[in-house]
């Protein structure tokens, strides 16, 4: 169904409002965890594809059904590519830098499963958004 009015648009927006709350504030009504992987040219060049594969494999291996691994654009941290953002409902979003395949596994096993931050790879969100 094509969108024909602002109301149509609003419906789609509301349907997806969960991701906005989760990604911006770490709030969410359900238990779905999101892992955002910076997959712009720069990220990919730095190995983001391997990071992505590693994340997905770990998710599959552990049969974690409540985790979505989502490709996103560049967050601007060229000095720390590939970057990964972990959004767990109820927690502030956490951004990791220099996430290679090993760190990607650690994100699943340490951060998601054991709630332990990988502190050497933590990045601060150093901007505000419009």
């Amino acid at each position: 169904m094509p969108i024909k009015s602002l109301d149509d648009l609003k419906k789609i927006r509301e349907k997806n409002s969960r991701i906005v709350a989760l990604r911006e504030r770490g709030e969410s009504s359900d238990e779905r965890i999101e892992i955002l992987v910076g997959m712009a040219t720069c990220g990919i060049a730095a190995g983001a594809r391997d990071t992505m594969i590693s994340l997905k494999k770990a998710v599959d291996d552990m049969k974690l059904e409540n985790i979505s691994v989502i490709p996103v654009g560049c967050i601007g941290y060229c000095h720390s590519e590939p970057t990964v953002q972990v959004n767990i409902p109820g927690d502030a979003p956490i951004i990791y830098g220099n996430v290679d395949e090993i760190i990607a596994e650690k994100i699943i096993y340490m951060h998601i499963l054991n709630k332990e931050l990988i502190d050497d790879h933590l990045l601060n969100k150093i901007f505000t958004k419009a």
Binding site: C74, G76, F127
Partner: peptide
């Protein structure tokens, strides 16, 4: 203040949405 040095309008969604 330190973090307010950056304010993202053009890049507001970059890294936060799946572009596809």
């Amino acid at each position: 203040e330190f973090y307010q040095k950056q304010y993202r309008i053009a890049l507001r969604n970059c890294g936060f949405i799946n572009p596809e």
